[in-house]
Amino acid sequence: MTQVSVQDTVLVGIPGEPRLIGGKCPDCGNHVFPMQKDCPKCTGDQIEKVELSTKGILWTWTIQGFPPKSPPYIGETDPENFEAYGVGYVELPGEVKVEARLTENDPTRLRVGMEMELTVVPLAIDEEGNEVVTFAFQPTENN
């Protein structure tokens, strides 16, 4: 089954080497995610696309314990088969905090300050039989 990105303007390098596309303001250095032209910090409008770091620190987190409404969610919504998943903000040093799915859903195995790295998790199978994936962060082996 071929993997495809949930949105190829945001998550690139699928399959293989996932990267997130954000933006950096040439005027003030502020980073944004996803890419947008306008800078909320300095009010400039010339933000340029950049690939964001793939490693960061877990800033906060929660566990999504019930199936989100569909639409918009395209993952499993049947309460029988739904599996809780982690969501958190990962601080990419010198850039920005990104909100992302986490591969871990056990509260005892997550803590503020953990080292995290970028990966993907499956969401759904599309009409052509491809596996749609979104980005996620997983704890690194250093923890």
Binding site: P34, M35, P72, Y73, I74, Y85, V87, A100, L123, T134
Partner: peptide, 13 residues
């Protein structure tokens, strides 16, 4: 605004 993925991925709650 480049944000369809946000709800589709199970965030935006």
């Amino acid at each position: 605004d480049n944000l369809e993925w946000y709800g589709e991925s199970g965030m935006a709650l």
